[in-house]
Each structure stands twice: as structure tokens, then as C-alpha cells.
């Protein structure tokens, strides 16, 4: 019962805190354990986004690059964080680059598989979407503060 073992591991992750076991077992069917070496790209801007990650260990940077600007890191993600939501809606393409800044362990979820399960079980869909919404609200709020150039004024 690989799926059941995996569902137990999933239950440990902050993202799934409070989620029903039956939903976790159901979702575990879409999940696998993955590992990224330091410095590798987990995904790159413009690639097909068919997956999302729950980070278990290590640090990931979200980056964008361009002439003159060079490479800009605008967010770092860590253990307990969610990485990626471009799999949720068409055109299912990654917006930014994600790079492992250290060895990274994560659960990877197949996007198509998860979407199908959510279509089939709306209760699961609601549970999952409300978790994503909370993450997105937090990221949006933080991004707004980041835009404010908070430290510009003297203390």
C-alpha cells in the first residue's frame, strides 16, 4: 500500500493540516516524492505547468531575468510552502523560474490527476481550493508590501 504510506506522509505537511484522511488517500494517488539537487531548475518560465510541489526540505527561489535587470530573485520558499499554481488554470504554463537553492525534497502532484479528482469530488475540490486561496492571499499581501519598498523611508 504505497498510496496509504504516502497519504500518511502527506498528513504531516502543513498544507494538509486538518484534511480528511479519505481525501488524502485519494490525492496520494496523484503524488510522488521528488528530489532536486542544489542549483537545478525545478521549472522554467514558459514551460508546461503540469504539477505542483509541497516543499518538505530545502529552499527554492522564484526568479525572473531580463536584459539590464539581470536575474532577480523576488521570493524564496521553504519547508512547508507550496510551489506552483499555474497548473490550476489554462494555459497551464509556468510564469517564472523556480530554482533549488539547496538540496530540495518535495511531494510532486500531477496537475491533470488532481484536477480530475477535484471534478469528481467537489468536497475535495473545496478543501484543496480553500487551502490554495489562503496561500495566494498571503502571497498577494506580502507581494503588495514588497512593492511598497518598505525600507525606503528611514527608521
Amino acid at each position: 500500500m504505497v498510496t496509504r504510506d504516502l497519504s500518511r506522509s502527506l498528513a504531516q505537511h502543513a498544507f494538509f493540516r486538518g484534511m480528511d484522511e479519505k481525501h488524502l488517500v485519494f490525492l496520494a494517488g496523484c503524488a510522488k516524492n521528488v528530489l532536486f539537487d542544489q542549483g537545478t531548475f525545478i521549472f522554467r518560465e514558459g514551460e508546461k505547468a503540469g504539477v505542483f510541489y509541497l516543499l518538505r526540505y530545502g529552499q527554492v527561489a522564484l526568479e525572473v531575468h531580463g536584459p539590464r535587470k539581470g536575474q532577480i530573485r523576488f521570493q524564496s520558499l521553504h519547508e512547508d510552502d507550496v510551489l506552483g499554481w499555474s497548473w490550476l488554470f489554462p494555459p497551464y504554463t509556468w510564469h517564472f523560474d523556480a530554482r533549488a537553492l539547496s538540496l530540495v525534497r518535495a511531494f510532486a502532484f500531477d496537475g491533470v490527476c488532481v484536477r480530475e479528482k477535484c471534478d469528481a469530488d467537489h468536497e475535495l475540490g473545496y478543501q484543496l481550493m480553500s487551502r490554495f486561496a489562503e496561500v495566494m492571499v498571503g502571497r498577494l499581501q506580502a507581494a503588495r508590501l514588497q512593492c511598497l519598498d518598505l525600507y525606503g523611508a528611514p527608521a
Binding site: Q146, C147, L148, D149, G152, A153, P154
Partner: peptide, 12 residues
Amino acid sequence: YLHVRPRVTISL
């Protein structure tokens, strides 16, 4: 009045 540091490119 408080002195304001010039903004960088990321700003609203």
C-alpha cells in the same frame, strides 16, 4: 516633514 529615500524601480 520626514526625509524620504528615493524609490527603487519596484514600487506602486
